[in-house]
Amino acid sequence: MSVIGWVIYIIAIVAMFYFIGIKPSQKERKKQEALLASVAVGDTVLTTSGFYGVIIDMTDDTVIVEFGNNKNCRIPMQKAAIAQLEKPTMAVKSDDKK
């Protein structure tokens, strides 16, 4: 192979790594950042540990989540521990469209 062939081969390998490895993780990170920015008090969340709860208080990087029907089960945790978000208004809007 000539030098030009090797250069094209290396560029193709780097492009493949970018589009298979780096680009999807950047997209997922932006999606998670948008999710954490939209969190509000009263939202039902799923934590990374698998627990469902309701946010009752927030600061910049921490939230206090109430788990279950027991009002004494309130745990402070980092915002980054939120995996999914269920807004009460979104459920009502999706039911109206059906």
Rank of each mutant, 00 (worst) to 15 (best):
M1D: 14
M1V: 14
M1G: 15
S2E: 09
S2K: 15
V3C: 09
V3I: 12
I4A: 13
I4F: 06
G5E: 12
G5Y: 07
G5S: 12
G5A: 10
W6C: 04
V7E: 07
V7K: 06
I8E: 09
I10Y: 13
I11T: 12
A12C: 05
I13E: 08
V14P: 02
A15N: 10
M16F: 14
M16N: 05
M16I: 10
F17S: 07
Y18N: 07
F19E: 01
F19Y: 04
I20C: 06
I20K: 05
I20R: 06
G21C: 05
I22N: 07
I22H: 10
P24D: 00
S25M: 09
S25H: 07
S25K: 12
Q26N: 14
Q26Y: 08
K27Q: 01
E28P: 00
E28M: 10
E28W: 08
R29F: 06
R29I: 08
K30Y: 01
K31V: 14
K31Q: 15
K31E: 15
E33W: 05
E33D: 11
L35Y: 09
L35E: 05
L35R: 12
A37H: 08
A37M: 08
V39A: 08
V39Y: 06
V39N: 02
A40H: 14
A40W: 09
V41L: 11
V41I: 15
G42C: 08
D43K: 03
D43Y: 01
T44N: 10
T44G: 04
V45D: 01
V45L: 04
L46C: 07
L46W: 00
T47L: 05
T47M: 05
T47P: 00
S49L: 06
S49N: 06
S49W: 00
G50W: 01
G50S: 00
F51S: 13
Y52D: 10
Y52F: 15
Y52M: 12
G53Y: 06
V54C: 07
V54H: 10
V54F: 06
I55H: 02
I55A: 00
I56R: 10
I56C: 03
I56F: 02
D57N: 14
D57L: 06
D57G: 09
M58E: 05
T59V: 06
T59Q: 10
T59N: 15
T62P: 01
V63P: 02
V63W: 08
V63I: 10
I64L: 13
I64D: 10
V65T: 03
F67D: 01
F67N: 02
G68D: 03
G68T: 04
N69E: 10
K71Q: 04
K71N: 01
K71C: 02
N72R: 11
N72M: 13
C73V: 09
C73Y: 14
P76D: 04
M77E: 05
M77Q: 06
Q78N: 13
K79N: 12
A80L: 12
A81D: 05
L85Y: 02
L85P: 00
L85K: 00
E86I: 02
K87S: 12
K87N: 11
P88S: 14
P88A: 14
T89M: 11
T89W: 13
T89Y: 14
T89I: 15
M90E: 11
M90S: 13
M90K: 13
M90W: 12
V92A: 13
V92R: 15
K93D: 09
S94Q: 15
D95I: 04
D95V: 03
D96R: 14
K97M: 13
K98G: 04
K98S: 02
K98I: 02
K98R: 12
K98A: 03
